[in-house]
Computed example of a mutant assay.
Amino acid sequence: MTPHSRRPDRPSTTSPTPNRSPRASTPARAWAELLRLPALFTVPGDALVGAATSGARPDSRTLLAIASSLCLYEAGMALNDWADRTEDALERPHRPLPSGRIRPSAALTAAGALTAAGLALAACAGRPALTVAAPLAATVWAYDLALKRTPAGPAAMATARGLDLLLGATATGGSARPALPAALTLATHTLAVTTVSRGETRGGSPLAPLAALITTGTLAWRLTRTPGASGEAPSRHPAADALHTALTAAFVTTSGRPLLHAALNPSPPLTQRAVGGGIRAMIPLQAALAARSGALTSALLTAALAPAARHFARRVSVT
């Protein structure tokens, strides 16, 4: 999952959404804003990495896991705005709910329907997948309704993202164990980004972006320097190794540069850019984890989602 408690996510991906007139917005655009369309491209990589680290070749069950993840992710987005509608009326009146472009009841209904669809798709992928999807759905709802503003909020978001990767592993290979180190890597990045996101509307201390920057460097070092750092046997395919190195560099650049700026000046705009960069960095991180396991095709498919994410992020806020 992706941090989306307080937005810039959680634009352009680097700035708050302009205050558009509700009359100038179509229903399709309103729903695209509610569901954070650009962030959706960070989801399929979870299942692909899970499948890669399970040692099994992606199949129809992997596709079901991806579909389940997309539904549960979007359920969280809709529920997030429903839970934040009062606060958004003061801080983000242009958002779909406070601006009146989408009714709160419609957002809540969408969240419930998407959750049900996500669980049904996971069940179609098999009992092991449903065993992971159920706590994932519970974590998403608990985060949006109760944990978001508590000290447990970032950890809950990180847990959801890790479970999302394990969903792909269990759907494809039947076991979560081989994918645990990769899930921990993705969860650690999510924890750092979500912690930074808490200062995106009012600014804050430079400590959070600085800690996230250190986390980015540490994860990259473990991926590139330590054999089996992501939990899989190191790839011995030269093409996969080269791709892995390039993707790790892309992860560091995408996440690290805006975090450095936010650490030097933790103003709301720069913090928002840092959160947006952290979200976009999930794609090269996922692709690097897949390449690390030798799954060259999955790595390329995941990396190919980045241009689409950037394209849509210029039109719809990712947070």
Rank of each mutant, 00 (worst) to 15 (best):
E87C: 00
A134W: 14
L191G: 04
N80M: 04
F251R: 05
R10L: 12
H94C: 08
P3L: 13
L167C: 08
P178E: 11
A28H: 06
T201G: 01
S317I: 02
L108G: 03
L37N: 04
G256K: 09
A303I: 04
H261T: 12
V43N: 10
L296R: 11
L40N: 06
V252F: 05
A233S: 13
I102S: 04
H244D: 05
S255H: 15
A125C: 04
F41R: 02
P266W: 01
M77I: 02
R280I: 04
R280P: 00
A152K: 02
T216R: 10
S105Y: 01
H311I: 11
T195M: 05
T195S: 13
A146V: 12
R7G: 00
G45P: 08
A129G: 07
A107P: 06
S230Y: 00
L243Y: 05
L114G: 07
T224C: 11
T218S: 13
A291E: 11
A239V: 12
N265P: 00
P58L: 08
R92G: 00
A233I: 06
A116W: 10
A133T: 09
L163H: 05
A146S: 09
A30T: 01
P266C: 09
R280C: 13
E91K: 01
A24G: 09
T218K: 00
F312K: 04
W141S: 02
R57I: 09
A120H: 08
T150V: 10
T109W: 11
L147M: 13
A290H: 12
